[in-house]
Design a protein around this nucleic acid. Structure first.
Lengths: 228, 228
DNA sequence: TCCTCGTCGATACACTGTATTGAACGATAC
DNA sequence: GTATCGTTCAATACAGTGTATCGACGAGGA
């Protein structure tokens, strides 16, 4: 056995930061907010809490579980407005979900990827279901309406965040994006086999993202309203 | 850096096993089909082609690029039926996209995550746009209609695949799923604060996935048809 | 024949998630 | 007070990842 001098002084337990799932999830969300999901590793989350990676396994069984907890935590930021008009309530839910995704872009990467059954997600679900049944009294009809709306919202958010990242990655503005992919696009379009896309590129105008989202949302809600 | 689509693949002339982007992408897709995206690593793809991982970097600049190529390749399996009725054409596109995602489940993980501008994706885009303009002559209206429809299709596919995986992961049937998450769900629902979800669990019936998809699709198409 | 140059493979690096293991601690039993 | 026990934590280890670097090799040009 080596000498005492070689051996480090025992680390006093009292100096340890108390840990909790809430603290771990908060640290992970902070990391993801600023660096994306790639910035979330058990080592980094641990380091943010002055702990080693293995310490976290007392609170979380696997990294997937941590991601599930993060997703559920964001659901707690989404409150569904209570309104007698189902359209207003569901529209409000959609807008707040989008807003949450803009605050936590990584949310879009996880959304819909696996069923969300955490307590906060269930609360959101309950509230949207309550709004839906005011229009569709049969519970199965309400479920169908909601899953359709949710599919749209998830998809729209995902592509919006995707485009946001694409333009940002190529240099913070759309001009840079065009110079990056421009030559390729021009060459492909030059063969004349994409007349409609050509027309879109030359004659189309761009809506801002919020308008795009709202337009699509209106279309889906109209489809729902038209149901028997 | 310029895009993959712009850069020609190298014409390496050695007596080694001939390699090509097509071969690399095919190998990667085969791996992803049987083992999911986690099974796609440059080492494994290389091994499938009797090559080391570094060899691939002559054909592909980064792994992300390989994923982009895989996504575009799947788009080549999606052909849009040419029909004078825009609803039939777009419905056909949606069904084939879903079918492709069921053949390549990993497709759902990548779909919508970043703009798809590969040649095959552009071809699909052109065809859907062509169908859309027959109903919405103004190109901007066609774009809005399409992006709404695409958001729904992407979102619906993603949740369908997500649920498919969830039920499969917990043991191949829904009964097993209920015994896994059942106790937790029962406990949460027991507090009486989720009356509508309770009603859904007790009184609701399950549609099969194809019906769920078709129902939502019909709703969105109805919303589109109702536009001025 | 020699030289250059592009391509290839081995090695290396900084990371990842997580299994294992052993040590340090608080509480409990005598 | 001392001994023991079970829990909690940190260190180490392992297999795997994407990719940078670099030496070697083989073909094309002089």
């Amino acid at each position: 056995m080596e000498s005492v001098w070689e051996r480090p002084e025992p680390a006093g337990r009292t100096a340890l930061t108390p840990l909790s799932r809430a603290a771990i999830v908060a640290a992970a969300i902070a990391l993801a907010d600023s660096g994306g999901l790639d910035a979330v590793s058990l080592r980094k989350v641990g380091a943010a809490l002055d702990a080693g990676p293995m310490r976290l396994y007392g609170y979380v069984a696997t990294k997937e579980e941590l991601l599930d907890l993060m997703v559920d935590e964001v659901h707690s930021e989404i409150d569904v407005p209570a309104d007698t008009d189902w359209r207003i309530a569901l529209h409000g839910w959609a807008d707040r979900t989008r807003a949450a995704a803009l605050r936590h872009e990584w949310f879009a990467d996880l959304l819909g990827g696996r069923p969300a059954i955490g307590p906060h997600a269930l609360a959101v679900n309950e509230a949207t279901l309550a709004a839906a049944v005011t229009r569709f009294p049969a519970i199965d009809d309400a479920r169908r309406a909601l899953s359709t709306l949710r599919a749209y919202v998830n998809g729209a958010i995902r592509t919006e965040i995707g485009e946001l990242r694409a333009t940002r990655a190529t240099g913070l503005d759309k001009l840079r994006w065009q110079t990056t992919h421009g030559p390729y696009l021009m060459r492909v379009l030059a063969d004349g086999r994409h007349p409609h896309i050509e027309r879109l590129v030359s004659d189309g105008t761009d809506d801002d993202p919020a308008t795009v989202f709202a337009t699509g949302l209106g279309i889906v809600l109209t489809g729902l309203a038209a149901l028997p």
